[in-house]
Amino acid sequence: MLEFFISALILTGAIFTFIGSLGLARLQDFYTRIHGPTKATTLGVGSLLVASTLYFTFHEDSISLHEVLVTLFLFITAPVSAHMLCKAALHLELPSLAKLPESQTNSTAPQRQSSKDQHD
């Protein structure tokens, strides 16, 4: 019974991981591509880690919880890196299927200016 449950978790995790990467390879513009890895992959790896917690807890007769740490870390960092990537893409004004919002021209302006200078 438990083995069945762990197998089911492993399969769901792997399928979600695969769908996340499929989205990365398949979708058309950067802003839609970013959705695949940040969500599907997080839940995919999350359920793999839950499966491994269960496996090690029942096979080694001692509670194994340090997978929780990896899960927690991934759930905290995945949105942050997605946000940073999206911000960088908006800064570079990558083409998008949706209408791009007008770029901001307030307090980050000096920094943007200086970074442009360094690029040129």
Partner: peptide
């Protein structure tokens, strides 16, 4: 809030306005 938005239904937070 930005993290929650990035983790939930089909949305990613992209930029916080300067103010």
């Amino acid at each position: 809030l930005a993290n929650v938005i990035s983790l939930t239904p089909g949305t990613v937070s992209a930029r916080l306005s300067d103010d």
